[in-house]
């Protein structure tokens, strides 16, 4: 995925704001609170300036956390790009990420103890070290900043799924953007909870668990569908949807046999979603972009192993060899989020 649209990042931000913040509160909120406790004790006189004095270390903690996760996203994206050989390998990765998300959702819903294995536990020595550090940290800005950066080693369930998504993105910058948007989303909740006890954090998480699970489940199903889409599987949900909606405008395009097929790559998908083409003859597919910024610019035809990064504005010509009648050729963006198909008759 060469470019993430603003809408994609907004979804991640909102995920962080809603589910991520809540699910990460118990542990990371606790760290933040204990690193602040010295500050609170010192200012026990509760002068009106107390909140202002607390704001600086909280902001330090959150900024360090944001920076650490963005860097982590960059590294995970880079890791993903190493394996990013073909759309198919990426499809497999997306499927794995989706299964991981669904497993995490089922774990949160307590469906079966086996799903607990979907939650990765950080090594004991690390959690012990971080916990002790939080308790013994002295006042000042350095401790919260250090702890904020350390939270990268104790990601909660939802964050782990976001990390998997960053690997699946297959590019360092996309990975960084994913974790940046998500972590930024979790920040307001953290900021709010910094004034509350860790106890409340745990209670919140328990009460919102079903909600967190539902959102994770939906994200997982969408990711699996994107993976299927990218693999060119005919049974991806979004594809079945297209199969049932024969576009009348597309049928008209068949009238002129020698005209090239024209497909528009828009910010929110491809138009038309169904193209009709003549079987048994080579064809030219013109993919047209006009100020397109979303990931639809990374155009993939899995069956032909075509993968092109379209210009922001322009026309990319793709040669399609003769196909037998009845062939359905799916195309998609490199993340499998947008797609469509060419039907030969």
């Amino acid at each position: 995925m060469e470019s993430l649209s603003f809408a994609n990042l907004l979804v991640l931000f909102i995920t962080g704001l809603t589910t991520g913040g809540l699910s990460c509160l118990a542990v990371q909120g606790g760290l933040l609170a204990s690193s602040l406790s010295h500050q609170v004790e010192r200012d026990v006189a509760a002068s009106p300036r107390r909140s202002a004095q607390l704001a600086a270390p909280i902001a330090g903690f959150l900024l360090a956390k944001l920076a650490a996760y963005t860097l982590l996203g960059f590294l995970l994206g880079a890791l993903g790009s190493v394996f990013q050989m073909t759309p198919l390998t990426r499809a497999v990765l997306m499927l794995a990420v989706g299964v991981f998300m669904i497993g995490n959702a089922l774990r949160l819903l307590n469906v079966h103890p086996i799903f607990r294995f979907f939650n990765l536990e950080p090594p004991k020595f690390l959690t012990r070290y971080i916990r002790r550090k939080a308790r013994s940290s002295s006042e000042g800005l350095l401790a919260p900043v250090f702890l904020g950066a350390l939270t990268v080693f104790i990601p909660c369930g939802v964050t782990q799924t976001m990390m998997a998504l960053a690997v699946g993105a297959g590019s360092p910058w996309a990975g960084a953007a994913i974790l940046f948007a998500f972590t930024l989303g979790t920040s307001p909740v953290f900021f709010a909870v910094a004034f509350l006890t860790t106890q409340l954090g745990a209670r919140l998480e328990k009460n919102f668990r079903i909600f967190v699970a539902a959102v994770t489940l939906i994200l997982g199903l969408v990711t699996v569908d994107a993976g299927l889409n990218l693999a060119g599987a005919p049974f991806a949900v979004s594809r079945l949807w297209q199969a049932n909606s024969a576009a009348p405008t597309a049928a008209a395009a068949l009238a002129d046999e020698n005209a090239p097929l024209v497909l528009e790559a828009l910010n929110d998908g491809y138009a038309p979603e169904v193209l009709m083409a003549k079987a048994g003859q080579p064809l030219e597919l013109h993919v047209v972009t006009n100020n397109t910024r979303s990931c639809s610019r990374a155009f993939v035809i899995p069956a032909l192993k075509v993968e092109k990064l379209l210009p922001a504005t322009g026309t990319e010509i793709i040669q399609i060899p003769p196909q037998t009648a009845g062939t359905v050729m799916p195309f998609t963006c490199s993340m499998g989020m947008y797609g469509g198909q060419i039907r030969f008759q």
Binding site: L108, N110, P122, T127, C156, G157, T198, A202
Partner: peptide
């Protein structure tokens, strides 16, 4: 106990 975070919280009892 529903996530690794709870593990960390409970282990905090040792301090």
């Amino acid at each position: 106990m529903h996530c690794a975070a709870c593990v960390m919280r409970l282990e905090g009892l040792e301090d």
